[in-house]
């Protein structure tokens, strides 16, 4: 085996590992994209309507915002907004970036980065919701 062949086989292994990351077919990804988009519309609408249960400026006061997080159902609503928008938004970004360049390295890089960024944002947002939910006001 020449050094070139070794390099190639190593590359192939990495390529296979990377391509396994995107297990879904594009139509399945786009189905998720459309469903999360429509679902996000509903949950964001509920989220905005919740501002109307008291005068708008009051609803944005620190204590009231933290109280929202203390309500488990509201915290779940916020979590679902976070997950839905992160999935929809990052896939949208992936679609835009894929159109810019068509090299394999770019495509795989975009796929991996988008998945990492999506998981990172969801984890960070979930952490915020959990902390706010457990925050004592007293």
């Amino acid at each position: 085996m020449t050094s070139d062949n070794i390099k190639n086989s190593k590359n192939k292994k990495t390529t296979k590992w990377i391509s396994n990351i995107t297990l879904l077919r594009e139509s399945q990804i786009m189905k998720i994209h459309y469903i999360t988009g429509v679902a996000a519309l509903f949950v964001v609408a509920i989220h905005i309507l919740m501002r109307l249960i008291m005068p708008f400026n009051m609803s944005l006061e620190f204590e009231n915002v933290i109280l929202n997080y203390k309500n488990v159902f509201y915290a779940l609503l916020l979590e679902s907004i976070l997950v839905l928008i992160a999935i929809h938004g990052f896939n949208g970004l992936r679609v835009i970036l894929l159109e810019i360049r068509q090299t394999q390295i770019w495509e795989r890089g975009v796929n991996i980065l988008v998945i990492i960024a999506m998981i990172g944002i969801i984890a960070y947002g979930t952490r915020t919701i959990i902390i706010a939910n457990g925050l004592s006001l007293g």
Binding site: R25, E26, S27, M30, V95, E99, E107
Partner: peptide
Amino acid sequence: RLKIIDTNHGIWR
């Protein structure tokens, strides 16, 4: 036929 066009750079773009 559907598989051929159902790719990263296929019909969804």
